[in-house]
Structure formats: C-alpha cells, structure tokens
Design a protein around this nucleic acid. Structure first.
Length: 838
RNA sequence: GCUCGAGUGGUGGAAUUGGUAGACACGUUGGACUUAAAAUCCAAUGAGCAGUAAUGUUCGUGCGGGUUCAAGUCCCGCCUCGAGUACCA
C-alpha cells in the first residue's frame, strides 16, 4: 500500500511531487515543536479552553489504545485553536506504580531508570502520531517537584482532618504485596491489576476522608456534562440510602427490656415494616457478639465465627449455600420497640460489619432474604404490607397499605416510613438516617515506587507530620529489590531514620507510599501552573483554566480516578488552595471505547498488542489517525480487525493528488463566469463546512471522515466532468477541505496548505458557511401513496403546500392509484414529502 | 437479581426533531489503463419475484404486538449480546 518506488506512477498523469507521509510528518512535527504552535501562556488574550486527555502510565511506546485516545484529544485541540481559543493542551505521565517496581525485581533496573526510559519512548510516540502539547508544562508523578506538592497536599488535608490512620480490615493482594482500595477489588474478589484473589487482613492504614463529601459528590453529578452511564455508576457507588437508625433494647431472661446496657443499634431503609421484625441479625465481627451470646450457645457461635473467618470474601458473598448453615442463633434476645416483643438475635455472614451498624432488623414478610432465613431457622413471619390479591410470592417488597402495624395501619409505604421515624424520635429510640455505601479511601500502599507518606513516628510524641520545609521526601535511589516483593523502604536505614519534628528525638519514617490514584487526583491542577515552587498551583491559574472544558479518557476510570479527582478538587477548594468556587474538576467528559483484538481487550498483560510503529512507517500517522476516527463512533469499543488503514491511506492519496499545486486534475480549470455545476460545487463546499463543524462539536468523528470522503468524491467527479472545473470554485473547495480536515489529518493538510497558499493551516481561522448557500434551489420531493414511495420529483426548495400537493396528485403513479377517485387524505410536508392516502 | 447500553446488507457503520433505510468505507464484480501485474481511475453491488432490457413489484433495521397518513426512530411485552454492580439491610 505504500506509494510505488517511482512515485508518481499512480496519479493519472503524475503530480509534481508525491505524497510521502514519512517526509512531511517528521517535518511538520518539528515545525509545531520548534515554533511552539500549541504553547499557551497564562495571560494569553484568547478565550481559555482546557482540553485534557487522561495522562498515561508510561509503559513504553504508545499502543493502539493510546493512539485512539490521544488522536481524539489532538483533534479537539487543533479544532478549538482554529476556532480562536487559547487552548491549554498539556501532557504528563502517571509515572509511579507497580509495573516499574516489578520490572526492577525481575531485571534489576531501577524503577527510576525504567520509568524515565519509558517516558521518553511514550513522548516520542505521541509526537509521531502528531499529537501536539505545550511540552513546557509536562508533569510527572515521580518528579521531586511533583512529589513535594503531593505530600504538601497530604499534610494540608491532614491538618484539615481529611486524613487519618486506622486499624481496619483491608484488602491484601498477595501478588502485588500491598493493600488495595475497595475500588481496586473487582466484583469476583480479585485484584484489578494482578488478578490474584484478594485476602482480608487487619492492618494500620492511612485513609482519605472521602465520605465527608459523599452527599456533595452525589449532588454535583447533576452539574457536570458527563455520559449518563458514568454518572449512574458513580451514583451507584456512592449508594445513598435513606432510612432509620434505632436501638433494640437487650432483653433479659423474661423478655423485658434492660435499661442497664446499650440497646443494639440497627439501620433499616424500611422503618415502616418494623412491626414485622421477628428477629435481628448481627455480623460475626460485631463487637457485641460475646455479650449477646448465651452460655449454651457459645460453642456453636464460636465455631461459626471461626468458619467465617476462614472463608474468603467471595465465598462469603456468594449466594450459594443454604442459609441455615450461614447463620447461627446467639441465644440472646432483644426487644422490638414497636411491639414490645422479645425477638431472637442471630449471627449471619451476610451481614457486613462495614455497612450501617453491622446489625439489622429482620422482616421476613417484606424481605426475601429474611424470609429464607426465617424459614430455615423457624422464625415467625408477619406481613406488614398488604400484597395485592393476585400476589403469590413469599416476601412482598412492593407498595401497599400497612397492616398488623398498629398506628401505621392503612398508610402507604412513604407515609408509614415518615410516621415510624417520627415515632422513633418522639420515644427516643432513634432517628431518620442517611447512609452511604461509599467508604473512606484507603491510600497507603506497601510499595517502594510511589509517593512516600510524609509522616514520622516518634516513641515519645507519636505520629508526627513532616514539616513542609523538609519536603519532598523522595524514595532513596540506593535500594535493592528483593524477590519477596517486600518494599525496600522497610529495610533502608537511611530512609527509615528521621528526627521527630516535635522533640528532635529519634523517629522512624512511615514506609508506606501513596496509592498512585493520589498523584492523578490533582495533576490537572498542576498543569495550570506547572513550575510554581511556592504552592502546588496558584488559585489564579486554577481560576483561569479550571474546570477542564473537555476531559477525555477510558471508561475504566469511571469510578476510581474520577471519584478521587472530584474529591480532591472539592477538598482543595475547602482548605483554601484551589478557588473556593471550584467544585468540579471536569466540566465535560468524553469516554472513548477500548480496542479489542481477538475478542478481548487489547492490553500488555494479554499480550495482544498491535504496535503502531509498522503502520506509522508504512502508511503514516495521518492514515492511522483517520482510521481510528473513521472506524466507529468514538465512544464505542472497536475490534482491531475492523480498522481500514489502507482505505484511509488511499483516501489521503486522493486528496493529495487533487490538492497538490500543479495537479493534473486541476490542469484544465476554466476561468470566466461560473456555471450551474460550479455553483453546485460551491454550495457543496459550504455544506461541508457546516456539516464538519457540527460533527466535530458533537464528537461524530466517524461521520466527519465520511464527509471528507464524500466531498472528495464530489470534487473528483467535478474535475473529471466534460466541462472541467472552474479555477476559483475548485480552489475554494479544496481550501475548505484542507481547513476542515486539518484537525484530523494535520500533517497532510499543513503541507498542502503551505504549498498552495503559504503559511500554516492550523493558525488559519475556522471557515464559516454562508447560510444562504446551504440549500439547493431545487430539492427532491418524495411522493408517497399510503406511506410507500411511488415517485420522486425535483421541486423548488421554497415550494408551497398547495403547489406540492398539486404536483403530487399529477404524478402518473398517484393518478393510477386514485383510479379516478378522490384521495382520502393528503399530507404535505413541502418540500420534502407528500403522502397521498387512498 | 438489579442498573445501563447495544442488536440495521457479506463486513464496520449512516440516518440530530417520526418523513427517500443502507451515507461513507471495506469486500466482491465488471470496465478503462498496462505486454502483464500492482497501483490508479470509472461503474455496479440489501434480498426475492417478473422482464432481453429500461423497468416494475414485494419483502426488509433481533422477535411479537400497538400508536400514526408515515416507525430503525415513539409505546407495551419478550429474546440475545456487552458493560457495571452484586446479600448495602
């Protein structure tokens, strides 16, 4: 598919030069870089517009997923620049992380060396696909200048009470030798990175208090222009529920409520069904298990707790297994405050200590799981909502009037809830309560290649934040990587030993580092002010550029990165670092689909990567970019097998032969008065501009590429028609094509534009369409009989309804269908359609 | 189970408010150019039926109903595939 060695053999009679992607692409990449075409200063007079593609983990040269992502971002950067905006287009590298450390263990190469090498390789790839950035603003997570501010922000949050240390049951990945955040554990209980089965361990860990923002994180989703899918996922993850929390007094041997011990707190979303509570269930990890267990049941309870402790999370969460085996009676009883009845307390593994109060009221009449449990353990079942007459199921969870519920009887669910909560509050049993599924963000990792947590431990003063003037705390370079996978920080004396900032006595340093999602939670703010050495960024710079006008990335970050970055932005604003009014980091989000090969996601770990190099060497960057844009709507996943690189390369050749100065295709061009054919090409040119503008604006890149091709086909027919082209009409048409294609195929368009007109196509203003030229004088009107197309007529574009009707009724087909009779009805939608009903 | 999203020619897809279904591309076929091939250019290409042909005609957007003059598009009920989530009380 590469041009034939003798170059011009392919053109009808040959152009003065041939389309040589290698030569022009390298040259223009150099021009954009040397001239700083896409550098933008913070006092740029143009309207600010911030385009950001998620910064990549530097895993080596770009793969196809990168190409797709950064091509789309680049198209937008170039398009908005031509529209007259001062576009901030930064790039950086998410350069901390486990792969570099694993490589060090395997090959002995230091993660810093490995990472720097990969950053270089990836930077070079990005340049080679023609993506343009303000390279002065590069940010790398592992740079000392970035670590410093990541740690500074940690301390700022520490001061504000948004960071804390706690002993908690955590997710431990044996493969990664570190703990993971809840968000990094997949639904099947495996690590999202290594695929290993995640274990439960109790460890001292650091947390960001993201739950303090649960409600705001939920509410502000309404104010961002994001794909609904992503918003739904976040809402689900935050998991707000409204209900009531109240106490169940512990019962004595006679079943009376004791007043000398704390009632057992339960949380429910269905306080309206409380009269149907016939037992309670608590988590095996609940601190009051011992207290509630009677002596005769203690052996069974202990055995049950031991069996649960030995089970993995997946086993425990599976719905397999009979419920009687998954729960055990404690022998203890509590009192249902609504009925005054004593009810038994069970232990069951499905009650999680980490949600609500770790204890639930069980209402078998309205909850299927409670129903199953009640049947297995012989508990009473009382319906408190009247099911419809035709209901033949077990638990009824639908709407209906309350029954068997004293003062709630007859009320609907919503009213009964409110009344039950009011009753609880009035009698001091409890209150209405909102709960969230979202947990605090576990940020510590037992790894070397990450941002160290700036804390020291002093025997006398305890946990102490590192003074900010000692930042950054960098991971030391003189370390050995052990095949055990244990972080070398834990054995590095030079790193470990520190001085207590409070008493100047000896202290030891925290050896955990931060989750790399911490780094990516504020990098977009650093881009606004990347060299600031007083602050992570100035509020003014953030005010100018943030929120990001268009953020672009993979949907795989829908929960993790995007939730964390939102939290950081809000918290940074609240601690006075970011502008007060900056509540969201990314105003608009576009999530592009991933690339599959052989049915599975293309990824390094699957070993099914297609390297772009061979294509760049052969058909060139513009052809590869076009193929990515054309193959499918950008938000959808795509199979590599469906890419049409050759077709795109062929198309670029067609454009080249048409547009290159001295092209034989334009050789016989006429001058003088334009003909109707010329006027039609002129109108097509204006329609192209209008169409592409609209399609770029709504991310319909695949149809935009089709638009280029369609228009090019039109021009080929035009230049090869008997009359030949009109010189100025053709020039205007080709110029317009080069302008609208410039964001998509930048090298080719830049080269042709320079050859034709001089100057840089990418600094030209975006063309505008003349509205008067968007419609033809005549249009094709469809004539239908009973909704079926029977004829097509050329009519004036401004034909009125009466004329259109008359023309339609005069058609042979219509006359035949009417067979002398009158139409029952005529629907006229001039000038597009007339439908005759007979 | 729940929540989203998607099902259109041989293939990827197009059709923004209901108004010519299949743009554009790939593939295939034919023609031009060539000693030949490649490349290039031009043309045809949803399926069926009738016709030498121009053409005519029927069917056709996962399945079954419905609304409408008119449905890929709206409504109801299903099926299949994909994604997310999963005992969250």
């Amino acid at each position: 598919m590469s041009p034939s060695p003798d170059g011009t053999a392919g053109a009808p009679t040959g152009g003065p030069t041939r389309y040589d992607p290698q030569a022009i692409e390298a040259r223009w990449q150099q021009v954009w870089h040397d001239e700083g075409t896409y550098q933008v200063d913070n006092d740029d007079p143009r309207p600010p517009f911030y385009v950001l593609s998620m910064y990549p983990y530097p895993s080596g040269p770009a793969h196809m997923g990168h190409v797709r992502n950064y091509t789309m971002g680049d198209l937008l950067v170039r398009y908005r620049t031509m529209r007259g905006d001062g576009v901030l287009s930064p790039i950086g590298f998410d350069s901390f992380g486990l792969p570099a450390e694993n490589a060090a263990i395997k090959t002995g190469t230091h993660p810093r060396v490995h990472t720097d090498r990969n950053v270089e390789a990836l930077s070079a790839s990005l340049r080679r696909i023609g993506a343009v950035y303000d390279w002065r603003r590069v940010v790398k997570s592992h740079d000392a200048s970035y670590i410093r501010w990541t740690q500074w922000i940690f301390l700022k949050f520490y001061e504000a009470g948004l960071v804390y240390r706690d002993n908690a049951p955590v997710n431990w990945c044996p493969g990664c030798q570190t703990v993971l955040a809840n968000e990094q554990v997949l639904g099947d209980g495996t690590c999202e990175r290594s695929g290993d089965l995640v274990e439960r361990r109790d460890m001292e860990q650091w947390f960001y208090r993201i739950t303090a923002y649960a409600q705001e994180l939920l509410d502000d989703l309404d104010h961002v222009d994001w794909p609904e899918k992503v918003k739904v996922m976040q809402r689900h993850w935050i998991g707000r529920s409204e209900g009531a929390q109240f106490g169940l007094p512990v019962a004595d041997a006679d079943g009376n409520a004791r007043t000398d011990v704390e009632p057992l707190a339960v949380y429910t979303t269905r306080p309206d069904t409380s009269f149907g509570m016939t037992f309670a269930v608590i988590s095996p990890e609940h601190p009051r298990v011992d207290e509630l267990t009677t002596d005769d049941r203690r052996a069974d309870v202990e055995a049950f707790r031991a069996s649960v402790a030995g089970r993995s999370d997946i086993e425990r969460q599976s719905t397999e297994g009979t419920l009687d085996k998954r729960g055990v009676a404690t022998g203890g009883r509590v009192v249902n405050p609504f009925t005054g009845q004593a009810i038994p307390v069970f232990l069951a593994d499905y009650v999680l200590m980490t949600y609500g109060t770790g204890a639930i009221m069980a209402v078998p009449g309205q909850d299927q799981r409670d129903w199953d449990f009640a049947v297995a353990h012989g508990c009473d079942i009382v319906r408190t909502v009247q099911p419809p007459d035709d209901f033949d199921g077990e638990a009824y969870v639908g709407e209906g009037p309350a029954i068997n519920s004293a003062f709630l009887d007859g009320m609907g669910v919503a009213e009964a809830k409110a009344t039950a909560i009011a009753w609880l509050e009035e009698h001091g049993h409890g209150t209405g309560k909102v709960n969230y599924r979202l947990r605090d963000w576990l940020l510590s990792r037992q790894r070397y290649w990450g941002c160290p947590i700036p804390i020291v431990y002093c025997d006398d003063c305890g946990e102490q934040p590192v003074p900010v003037d000692q930042l950054p705390i960098e991971p030391p370079d003189d370390v050995e990587f052990m095949p055990t996978g244990r972080s070398p920080l834990t054995t590095h004396e030079g790193f470990l030993s520190a001085t207590c900032p409070s008493c100047d006595g000896p202290a030891r340093r925290e050896t955990d580092t931060m989750d790399t999602f911490v780094d990516s939670s504020w990098y977009f703010l650093r881009f606004a002010d990347p060299t600031n050495d007083e602050l992570p960024f100035s509020a003014d710079a953030a005010q100018r550029w943030l929120p990001v006008d268009q953020y672009i990335g993979g949907v795989e970050h829908a929960i993790l990165h995007l939730m964390y970055a939102r939290f950081f932005t809000k918290a940074l604003a609240d601690v006075g670092v970011a502008p007060k009014g900056l509540r969201e980091p990314f105003q608009r989000l576009f999530t592009q689909g991933m690339i599959r090969l052989g049915g599975s996601k293309m990824s390094k770990s699957k070993g099914n990567l297609v390297a772009p190099e061979a294509i760049l060497d052969d058909q060139g960057a513009d052809a590869l970019r076009l193929a990515h844009l054309q193959v499918k709507p950008p938000q959808e996943d795509v199979d590599w097998e469906d890419f049409g690189i050759d077709g795109c390369a062929k198309f670029l050749n067609r454009v080249w032969r048409l547009a290159v100065p001295g092209s034989d295709l334009a050789a016989g061009a006429r001058t003088g008065d334009p003909t109707e054919a010329d006027a039609e090409v002129d109108r097509a040119t204006h329609r192209l501009v209008a169409r592409i503008t609209d399609e770029y604006d709504r991310w319909s890149y695949n149809t935009a590429i089709a638009g280029f091709m369609e228009f090019t086909n039109t021009l080929y027919r035009y230049v090869q028609a008997d009359d030949g082209p009109h010189a100025t009409t053709l020039d205007a048409a080709v110029d317009a094509l080069l302008l609208v294609m410039a964001p998509a195929a930048p090298h080719l368009c830049a080269d042709l534009w320079e050859a034709r007109s001089g100057g840089h196509v990418h600094t030209e203003p975006w063309p505008t369409a003349d509205p008067d030229k968007l419609v033809d004088d005549t249009v094709t009107m469809v004539v239908q009989v009973n909704g079926k197309v029977r004829d097509r007529l050329e009519v004036p574009a401004d034909v009125d309804e009466a004329t259109a009707t008359a023309l339609a009724l005069a058609c042979d087909k219509v006359v035949a269908a009417l067979d002398g009779g009158e139409p029952r009805k005529v629907i006229a939608r001039p000038p597009k359609l007339v439908n005759v009903v007979v």
